[in-house]
Simulated scan of single mutants.
Amino acid sequence: MKETGLIPNVIAMLDGLCKDGLVQGAMKLFGLMREKRTIPKVVIYTAAVGGFYKSTKFDDARRIFRKMQKNEIVPNAFSYTVLIQGLCKRKRLEDVVESSMEMLDAGHSPNGRTFIVLVDVYYKEKGIQEAEELMSSLQKRDYALDEKGHSRTLG
């Protein structure tokens, strides 16, 4: 994603509207950006998901992510990261695991920070045994962290 120019400004506007509780305004901007097609759709959808999570509109964020998939816009690794971290904040553990597995199935790996947040939330909510089972199921899908905390695939 470009560091300067239109993309960061639009994302910041979406984010700001959501944080200020102006969900309708954010949805209008989201719709306008989709119509104009000046920004890649995956960026627009991901920005909307992130904005809704930041404004604690969790169900709206999840709905937008699923709409992206329904509209055949393929989420990238960053899209999944935004989704998973938002779900972790909401402590929707079953959705977190489902989305993590979906991310791996799509050929993406969570970054080290996302993996740590995922396991930490799971540990705090479910206990050590369930957190270890989660890590084991991720390893069965050829995912692990190296000794420096960097994500890597095993296969």
Rank of each mutant, 00 (worst) to 15 (best):
residue 55 S to H: 02
residue 85 Q to R: 15
residue 20 D to T: 15
residue 130 E to A: 14
residue 6 L to N: 06
residue 68 M to F: 03
residue 142 D to T: 00
residue 36 K to F: 04
residue 119 V to D: 10
residue 138 L to Q: 03
residue 136 S to D: 11
residue 21 G to H: 09
residue 2 K to G: 08
residue 61 A to N: 01
residue 6 L to D: 09
residue 113 R to K: 14
residue 74 V to R: 01
residue 88 C to M: 09
residue 42 V to W: 01
residue 145 L to Y: 01
residue 60 D to K: 13
residue 98 E to Y: 11
residue 22 L to E: 11
residue 128 I to C: 10
residue 56 T to A: 13
residue 105 D to P: 04
residue 58 F to V: 13
residue 81 T to R: 04
residue 42 V to Q: 11
residue 154 L to I: 05
residue 73 I to A: 03
residue 70 K to A: 15
residue 147 E to A: 15
residue 62 R to N: 06
residue 15 D to G: 02
residue 42 V to F: 03
residue 117 V to N: 04
residue 127 G to D: 10
residue 32 L to W: 03
residue 48 A to G: 11
residue 31 G to A: 14
residue 40 P to D: 14
residue 88 C to Y: 09
residue 121 V to S: 10
residue 117 V to E: 12
residue 27 M to R: 11
residue 109 S to L: 14
residue 26 A to K: 03
residue 99 S to E: 05
residue 137 S to T: 12
residue 65 F to P: 06
residue 101 M to Y: 09
residue 136 S to T: 12
residue 98 E to V: 04
residue 63 R to C: 07
residue 155 G to L: 06
residue 145 L to R: 07
residue 48 A to R: 02
residue 40 P to G: 15
residue 84 I to N: 12
residue 28 K to G: 03
residue 94 E to R: 07
residue 137 S to G: 04
residue 155 G to K: 12
residue 41 K to G: 11
residue 80 Y to D: 09
residue 67 K to N: 08
residue 101 M to E: 06
residue 55 S to P: 09
residue 103 M to H: 02
residue 77 A to S: 14
residue 55 S to A: 15
